[in-house]
Design a protein around this nucleic acid. Structure first.
Lengths: 336, 336
DNA sequence: TTGTAAGCGTTATCAT
DNA sequence: ATGATAACGCTTACAA
């Protein structure tokens, strides 16, 4: 049917072994021979059979990306960073989304990974997610993006710092009653929301400001959730003068809630988010920008490097990327 | 190293052929035998080697998704629809983004597809894109999403109708000077923008309204582009009272431009988009909603079905999904 | 530097 | 219903 390595070998008058070496750029091939083989391969329109190559070599040349969401901004942006790197590296990217507590049921990812990929990239799964642990249990080269776990290489931002920067910005503007829109009421350690809340606490304590538990609301990292959370804060008997939302999307929802109450971000209540979402500039939202695409890129690069150079025993180390405060119109000095 | 089919066969006291049949659910296997083999396979924690299976069978069990963008709303939403179907079908999803005229250069996708996937899903590439034609030239089962081509199965909306509905809505509100924010100045046939503009023309002609060429601006389907386009329209000596933006994201940009000019959507100028973007409800944008995730889902289902049932000679047919006008605050009756 | 040949783990054909 | 075995197309010691 299709052209095989044998056809190329015959046409070049060499053995298949030499063709294999020549085409893969291995050493110990005469440069003249190599060029001749390359030309013939091109002329014959030969493409290697990945299945055969994988079976013989044991390497699959593919990396799985496991994510709880595909269409959300953060996840698709990370994914685009990952993709660009894997593309250049000539690696196949297997996309696999996993069920979330609220989502529809799916096949667990771990069994679908075995013998199928050389490495795994996991995007922002909850650290306690059993599916995550099954994947880690496969003990293949793995790198985490947007979450950290002991002993597992990861690429993240410093979420504590991000939360602190956001809160400190509000404090610097003179705000003292500061509300916070968290993800969920119950968080486990190592999550971004947990760390961001720690940063919030640090900043508040550092400024000797009290933390009013009634000024904490939950937006579940969605727009609608952010709207509800802000509505809750606004119905408080003594509403905050500033609010720290742990994600831009929740901040968007908060903006909507404010608008519904005839309030304007910045003028009436200061609002800050975290992310650097595409729409945040458009909505004039002050935010702590995280380099989301870079997160994906760097994690992918590290994983590719690890697969190329070392065995599964050598583990990459964890990386933290810097964030940046972008001040826009949604935050303004406190006015009594 | 790992457990192979041979190990299972030995443990079950049968041949590898029987194990293969039993595990794949093929007929002509005694039900007792099958169950015994299944149990042993589970106990041994056996997982099939995809590479070996692919090499022997000639099928890869994977489908490539080719898209010009990953992080944009439309594309990631289509992708999520595709993914959910392929996941359930047990097919691997290979994600591959291609260069766009403006984008960075990448390897052409076609060579990376050969012998690697059983079918291809292409998302909204320009119909004249040479890379698209290379892919089609592979003549493997392919389905297009969000674009149409003669002789190639596709899943789209009726873009002419969508453009017409959007425009007619403005006309029904009494608007006569209607501007349009198009994609690019030069469009080729079969593109969504071309069709949507046709719909715009139909509606205008049907209402005996003139089309002022100066009331056409270009937003290149981005937020920033939409902002520029609207700014251009606003600096017109006689600005439109209503504007049809061909995508929600361009409409968002248009909203920003209006705000910069102290204008309010709905009150000062009516604005309608197409898409049903997550943020459109939030921004109170009237829009023609298209079932984006469904587009991906249905295309994937059709492709899977085609691969399962028939040979490459049987082609699926094209599908058009319905759209729906959602009226919000950004459009209002014309006031002189 | 190049060739030989033994795998790699399935599937599928043909017997039985 | 089950078994034997020849592919499938490449990689990789090991030889030469």
């Amino acid at each position: 049917m299709a052209i095989t390595i044998k056809d190329v070998a015959d046409a070049a008058g060499v053995s298949t072994a030499t063709v294999s070496r020549a085409l893969r750029g291995l050493p110990n091939v005469d440069s003249t021979t190599r060029e001749r083989i390359q030309k013939i391969a091109t002329d014959l329109d030969y493409v290697i059979s990945p299945s055969a190559s994988r079976l013989a070599s044991g390497r699959t040349g593919s990396i799985a990306v496991i994510t709880p969401h595909i269409a959300r901004w953060y996840f698709s942006t990370v994914l685009s960073g990952v993709e660009s790197v894997l593309q250049s590296a000539g690696m196949d990217l297997l996309l696999m989304s996993v069920s979330t507590p609220d989502g529809q049921h799916r096949l667990p990812p771990a069994p679908r990974l075995r013998r199928r990929v050389d490495g795994v990239l996991v995007i922002a799964l909850p650290p306690q997610d059993p599916q995550l642990h099954e994947v880690l249990g496969l003990s293949m080269p793995t790198s985490l993006i947007g979450l950290t776990m002991p002993e597992v290489p990861s690429v993240t931002i410093d979420d504590v710092l991000a939360g602190q920067i956001a809160t400190q910005h509000l404090i610097n503007l003179g705000h003292t009653r500061i509300g916070v829109i968290n993800g969920a009421p119950i968080v486990s350690p190592y999550t971004a929301e947990n760390d961001r809340f720690l940063g919030f606490q640090h900043a508040m304590h550092g400024a000797d400001l009290p933390i009013d538990p009634l000024l904490e609301a939950y937006g579940y990292f969605t727009i609608a959730g952010g709207e509800q959370a802000m509505t809750a804060l606004l119905t408080h008997k003594n509403p905050p003068s500033a609010v720290f939302a742990m994600s831009d999307e929740m901040a968007f929802g908060a903006m909507k809630a404010m608008r519904n109450h005839g309030l304007q971000p910045g003028r009436d209540i200061s609002l800050i988010g975290i992310d650097g979402h595409d729409m945040s500039e458009f909505l004039d939202l002050t935010t702590v920008v995280q380099p989301v695409q870079e997160l994906g890129r760097i994690a992918a690069e590290a994983l590719v490097l690890q697969l190329r150079t070392a065995g599964p025993d050598v583990v990459a180390d964890s990386v933290r990327l810097p964030t940046q405060l972008i001040v826009r119109g949604s935050t303004a000095p406190f006015r009594a």
